[in-house]
């Protein structure tokens, strides 16, 4: 019996990937390449590291939402209907 697979990989990852590529390249970086508002502070580096951290956060969330059963072959896939009752 063939069943449709539940969405195991949250759809946010392609958005995060595309968003990361866009926000970490020209022309977006140009926005932060201007003079620093305060001495010793680099807006560009701040932007890069902040976005980097956000991407890691997204990766963490994506990984957390991945059904662990899907990662282990041989275990029950997410969404498999269960019967009630004793084994």
């Amino acid at each position: 019996m063939k069943r449709s697979q539940p969405p195991a990989y949250p759809a946010i990852w392609p958005l995060a990937l595309a968003g990361g590529v866009v926000l970490l390249n020209f022309p977006f970086l140009e926005v932060f390449s201007g003079p620093s508002p305060m001495p010793g502070f680099s807006p560009l580096l701040f932007h890069i590291f902040l976005l980097w951290g956000l991407l890691i956060g997204v990766a963490f969330l994506v990984a957390g939402r991945l059904d662990s059963n899907h990662s282990n072959r041989g275990e029950e896939p997410e969404g498999t209907p269960r019967r009630k009752g004793r084994p």
């Binding site: 019996m1 069943r3 282990n72 072959r73 041989g74 275990e75 029950e76 896939p77 498999t80 209907p81 269960r82 019967r83 009630k84 009752g85 004793r86 084994p87």
Partner: peptide
């Protein structure tokens, strides 16, 4: 099989068989 239902013939429901197959393979 903990938490899974089997019938009187010792079979799982059809939708459980692929998972059982993967489990056997993994073991």
């Amino acid at each position: 099989l903990k938490g899974k239902a089997i019938d009187h013939r010792g079979s799982l429901a059809d939708h459980e068989i692929p998972a059982l197959k993967r489990f056997t393979e993994k073991t």
